[in-house]
């Protein structure tokens, strides 16, 4: 664990230093015809390299922390995740590809962070973890890491349909003083440079991702907030219904992409 941290600190510095120089632009034609592509395919070689190597991928620090938390008993029920779910490699394999999911008891969509917290409050009688807390990020990263390589596959029909439609409308709604919708950047212009950044399709198959800019792992909702704010629009809260519905639509846009958690991005 300590050695890994040291290695990470070193490679992290090298990668950041390389960003300015290693800006190789692969100019593609505008995007709609490109098919579904992971953000990985738009990243620089350096960033891809960081992600590919488990020893240098900083996101694995959160996977490791999540693994520790998995067998830690907490709450009034005196249980750990492991007590009920056993080996996460088996029990969590499918969870990472199928959320957000429609839940009958709440009558709306639930994403993976919320499912984990439901287990904390209902099954463990423990406090819910705060959004973007180290614990919730670590557990989410750990759980989703069990699905690495498996194709994203969310259900958008049946009771999920109206929520899917809301997410889609959100994606296409212009917002903020710059008056842009997600689709203007991530659908119409994927592959194009916007000043110093290559626009990707805005996929979430790698989330939670380790962002070099954040210096830590972050959730898809944190990214949504950032993308709202940069067009000078009011963001929604992490875990809001609006973002969970958006997450469903965005996950569906990336249907079939392999889960890459923890991905590394600039």
């Amino acid at each position: 664990m300590k050695i890994r941290q040291l290695l990470l600190a070193l490679t992290g510095t090298i990668a950041v230093a390389g960003l300015g120089l290693g800006f190789v632009v692969s100019q593609t034609t505008s995007a709609k015809a490109e098919g579904i592509r992971s953000g990985y395919t738009y990243a620089t070689k350096e960033t891809q390299g960081l992600q590919d190597d488990e020893m240098s991928n900083p996101g694995y620090l959160w996977v490791d922390t999540g693994e520790d938390l998995w067998s830690k008993a907490e709450g009034d029920a005196g249980k750990s995740c492991n007590d009920c779910h056993g080996d996460a490699a088996d029990s969590m394999k499918k969870a990472g590809v199928s959320y957000p999911k429609y839940k009958d008891d709440i009558g709306k969509m639930q994403n993976i962070e919320q499912r984990i917290n439901q287990c904390r409050t209902d099954n463990m009688k423990a406090k819910a973890w705060k959004w973007e807390s180290n614990q919730l990020l670590s557990m989410t990263t750990y759980v989703r890491n069990q699905s690495t390589g498996m194709p994203v596959s969310v259900a958008v029909d049946g009771p999920a349909k109206p929520f899917f439609e809301k997410g889609k409308a959100f994606f296409n709604q212009r917002r903020g003083l710059l008056d842009m919708a997600c689709k203007h950047c991530h659908e119409d212009n994927a592959g194009n440079l916007i000043r110093a950044n290559v626009l990707s399709q805005g996929q979430i198959n790698g989330f939670p991702v380790y962002r070099l800019k954040w210096g830590k792992v972050g959730s898809s909702h944190r990214r949504f907030r950032g993308c709202n704010k940069q067009v000078r629009a009011k963001p929604f809260k992490n875990g809001s219904d609006e973002y969970v519905n958006l997450e469903l639509y965005v996950a569906w846009r990336g249907r079939g992409l392999p889960v890459e958690t923890p991905a590394v991005r600039n």
Partner: peptide, 24 residues
């Protein structure tokens, strides 16, 4: 178009407070 209107000050959705009534 993706290109913002640089001289418009109304008709926006979920505009951040500090930009209300302002144009770019």
């Amino acid at each position: 178009t993706i290109m913002p209107a640089f001289y418009r000050d109304s008709g926006f959705t979920r505009l951040q407070k500090k930009w209300v009534g302002k144009s770019i």
